[in-house]
Amino acid sequence: MNIVVLMKMVPDIVEELEIAPDGKSLDLEAIRPIVSERDDHALEQALLLKERSGGSVTALAFESRDVDEVLFTALAKGVDRAVKVSAGEEPLSTAEAAALMARVLPGVPNLMPADLILTGCQGIDDLDGVIAPCLAEHLRTPYLGIITGIETKEAGHATVYKEFAGGSRGQYVICLPAVLGVQAAEKPPRYVPVAKVRAVMKSRTIECVAAPAKEEASQLAIGAMTKPQAAGRAEMLEGDPTAVAAKVVEILSARGLA
């Protein structure tokens, strides 16, 4: 079982997000990138599969700020290879990234064919969650998303579990190779001691691969980006508790709630 995990960096929303002067993108200087949480779950799921059934896991990411730290951490957690793809400075749209990734993967030495390509089913910077299905389309493989569990007992197939609204859970058998969008690994992402990451930084290397020239053109362009505007404010009831209570009753009555 050879598994590729696609990881990417997203803005860390612990920091205040700022709009860039162009009015249609985030100010990248003001943000600090963090690995997409669901990609971290995809990595954990791959490591769990490797522990159960053997094989190899490769973590792969487009080059971006702080991504080395994420790839070294993946190596410390137990992936066999970490690959960084340089695709120039220009940010890629989701569709562009998927199309480019489909052309990058065959060019990475000794990587393809992979049995499973896992990635997060969504990223906070792209809630549509379309990169995995787009990639599957380019690679002509099956795709399933919102995955919360994977079993690989039979050759050529995987049993995957998908969550639905209301707590329902579906079980599917999917032909391999396949692309899966992981919502949550079967266990929370593991902790790796910092000393181990530091040791890996000295003893292991991240493989660097140059992406072919971008041919794809995005069909969508961001027109404008704005911060949320306050539409209205809560009314604060202040003063004598009896008067406040009477006002509360009045408001509830007016809305048919009392």
Binding site: V14, E15, E16, I34, P188, R190, Y191, V194
Partner: peptide, 24 residues
């Protein structure tokens, strides 16, 4: 085998943000 979740979060936060609460 597993670092207790609360401790894991505090350590991860301390590495990333320099404080265990995960504040900016």
């Amino acid at each position: 085998p597993e670092v207790p979740a609360e401790l894991q979060k505090a350590l991860t936060n301390t590495l990333r943000y320099g404080n265990p609460m995960g504040e900016s």
